[in-house]
Design a protein around this nucleic acid. Structure first.
Lengths: 136, 136
DNA sequence: CGGTATCCATTTTGATACTG
DNA sequence: CAGTATCAAAATGGATACCG
């Protein structure tokens, strides 16, 4: 197996353990959720999944409310994870394109499942919350 | 008293979002990810999905690092969403049990898909990150 | 066009102490 | 046992200004 445990004692098991895995800071799920739960990742991945490839400014336009800082920061993180690839056309001024890698597209699948769940059940949750509304 | 409604609008009034779907603050996916992405939700849901029902102290024991405050706060949020149900046995001292609702168990499915993706692909991501290391 | 750099506000989480 | 209350720290996100 690959070395993903440089800071942990050598336990070769990488498969889904009953528990004790999700709880360490190195836990893949923990780290994935830290990323995916961050404010712009989900919509950027979704947008790129749908649009295929977009220039920086287009992506920014399609992500209402995002600042240049956050867009870049999010994109850099995704790029570091190889979920997104950055392609520069050396024109003047340069045109920078972003798209999902195959890995990024594969992430969009479980993400889509989550979106699906949200769209199916969040209204239900909202109803419950209104009924049970306990005030602070 | 602590304000537990920081992630909610505070008024059930229908706010027509100036922009479309995934991008407005009322977007179900956005709100789901805000919850699920919070530090302890994923592991609590997973633990309850596996254990079925647990007392507060047991749950705390199985969630290393969590403070009473965060555990309670997380549980209250999940309870408000009807993802978790709280059952009190009126003994002295009282025994409080938590378990997933059917809705909570249904959420565990897409969540499990995400875990699965993470366990399959995060090592890959880590390798890339080491190779391409972009340090601040 | 596609970013960086800086500073600041908000949110979120943690530590600690105390209670019915 | 199962929480609350309070304060502080840390992480996150946003506004603004500037650059190649």
């Amino acid at each position: 197996m690959e070395d993903r445990t440089s800071t942990t004692p050598g336990h070769p098991e990488v498969t889904s353990s009953p528990r004790g895995d999700l709880f360490s800071p190195e836990c893949p799920t923990r780290r994935l959720l830290d990323r995916v739960g961050s404010k712009w990742v989900a919509m950027i991945v979704k947008t790129l999944a749908e649009a295929g490839e977009l220039r920086y400014a287009d992506l920014k336009r399609r992500t209402p409310g995002v600042s240049a800082k956050m867009l870049t920061q999010t994109l850099r993180g995704l790029e570091d994870d190889h979920l997104v690839v950055r392609r520069v056309e050396p024109t003047v001024p340069p045109a920078v394109h972003y798209s999902l890698t195959p890995l990024g597209r594969s992430l969009d699948e479980p993400l889509a499942a989550l979106r699906d769940w949200a769209e199916t059940h969040m209204s239900e949750i909202d109803q419950h919350r209104q009924e049970t509304a306990r005030q602070a």
